[in-house]
């Protein structure tokens, strides 16, 4: 650690900052290869996302599911290869925080869509009949 804080290095391994580069001089090539793999995978998934619905290859109603699966896969690629999130014990806290965030995102989006579609279904249509002025 370049910081003045002294630590027993033998216990440092249980914790790492999210996105930290683990370089030890010789690892530059390895680091670049990691990013390159990520770039290739992400580009591949992106290309599939853009071409799949246009190519008439899959059953049309499955397209939204396919797109969402591809998007989540690509987010995973970014997390692993660009932000270096791993399942190792040094990343426990980072992954827990991420899981909490993802849970909240799903609750907010899923809950909102469910509630709002339910309300739209139950409410009388408002088209044009109720013009209110100040």
């Amino acid at each position: 650690m370049s910081d003045a804080q002294a630590h027993d290095p033998s216990i440092e391994e249980f914790d790492t900052a999210p996105g930290d580069e683990h370089l030890d001089g010789s690892g530059v090539a390895q680091g670049v290869i990691g990013y390159l793999v990520g770039l290739v995978l992400a580009a591949l998934l992106t290309v599939v996302s853009f071409l799949l619905p246009a190519a008439n290859l899959v059953w049309p109603p499955s397209i939204p599911v396919a797109l969402i699966v591809l998007a989540i896969a690509q987010m995973g690629v970014h997390l692993v290869f660009f932000i270096h999130i791993t399942t190792g014990p040094d990343n426990t806290n980072n992954v827990m925080a991420l899981a909490f965030g993802v849970l909240i995102v799903f609750l907010v989006i899923g809950g909102s869509l469910w509630i709002m579609s339910n309300m739209n279904h139950n409410m009388a249509p408002m088209s044009g009949t109720m013009q209110m002025g100040p």
Binding site: L103, G111, I115, N118, N122, M123
Partner: peptide
Amino acid sequence: CLISFMVWLHHFFTMGAGGDV
């Protein structure tokens, strides 16, 4: 902490959601 994120609709029970919600 977790459940508190799953109850918010009770603030607008009367505003048009269905029985299941």
